[in-house]
Simulated scan of single mutants.
Amino acid sequence: MTSTDTGRPLRVVIGEDDVLLREGVARILTDAGLEVVARSGDADDLLKRALAYRPDVVIADVQMPPQFQEDGLRAAMELRRRAPQIGVLVLSQFCEPAYVMDLVGEHPEGIGYLLKERVGDVTAFVDAVTRVAAGGSALN
């Protein structure tokens, strides 16, 4: 399902500092019928845009500017705290169980954590995004 119960396309905000990956993810999602409402290459800007646009799901890279550490993960966790109805899908180059536990906490609803290499399987990636947007989880 790439649309909401009201029939409108799922709305997505993407946070990824690698412009090629960010634009590639946006293209994949747009081609699948989702609406990318904002894109950001910075974690602080990602949080602002996500709170302003109130999408169905936010896709965030773990390591992003401004500090190039776990800024994207921290932005995702803050978004969960401030707007728990927004699904959050984190993309990472490495499997870090501690990141997953920090993100999921006691509420796994609307949470996903995927390795970036999983984006290459377009069908599985779009499925993960739609599951997270619908309140499900995607952890792999």
Rank of each mutant, 00 (worst) to 15 (best):
P84W: 02
E78C: 12
V62Y: 06
A98G: 09
L139D: 04
F68A: 00
E16D: 11
V57T: 03
Y53F: 02
L89M: 06
G24W: 12
M64V: 10
L47M: 14
T6Q: 11
A138Y: 03
R11S: 09
R27T: 01
R49W: 00
G24K: 13
R22G: 11
A134N: 01
V129G: 02
A26G: 04
A128G: 09
A26R: 02
P9F: 04
D71F: 08
P108S: 06
E96T: 09
C95R: 15
V122N: 01
S137D: 00
T130I: 00
R81Y: 10
V36N: 02
L103H: 12
F125L: 03
A50E: 06
G72N: 09
V57S: 04
F94Q: 10
G120N: 15
P66K: 11
V25M: 10
Q63Y: 10
E117V: 15
M77D: 10
S137G: 01
L29K: 04
P84R: 08
L21H: 12
G7F: 01
R82N: 09
P55R: 01
Q93H: 14
A133I: 08
D102L: 15
V100K: 09
L34Y: 03
L46N: 10
G72S: 11
I28M: 03
G105C: 14
T130C: 08
D18W: 15
V129S: 02
L51H: 00
A75I: 14
V13F: 01
P84Y: 03
P66N: 12
G72V: 00
V19S: 14
D44S: 14
T6G: 10
R81M: 11
R8K: 10
P65L: 10
G135S: 05
T130L: 05
V88K: 06
G15Q: 08
D42W: 12
K48V: 15
E96G: 08
I59P: 06
R39N: 07
V122K: 09
K116M: 13
D121M: 11
Q63E: 09
D42H: 15
M77C: 15
D71P: 03
L10W: 01
Y53M: 05
G112I: 06
E70I: 14
I59W: 03
F125H: 01
F68T: 02
G105L: 13
D42Y: 14
F125M: 08
D31R: 04
G135I: 05
T2Y: 03
Q67P: 00
L29D: 05
L91C: 07
I86R: 04
P84T: 00
L29Y: 00
V129R: 06
K48T: 15
A75G: 13
I59N: 00
C95E: 13
D61N: 14
G15F: 07
P97T: 01
A138L: 04
A52K: 09
G135L: 06
L51E: 02
L51S: 03
A128I: 08
P97K: 07
D127F: 03
Q63F: 09
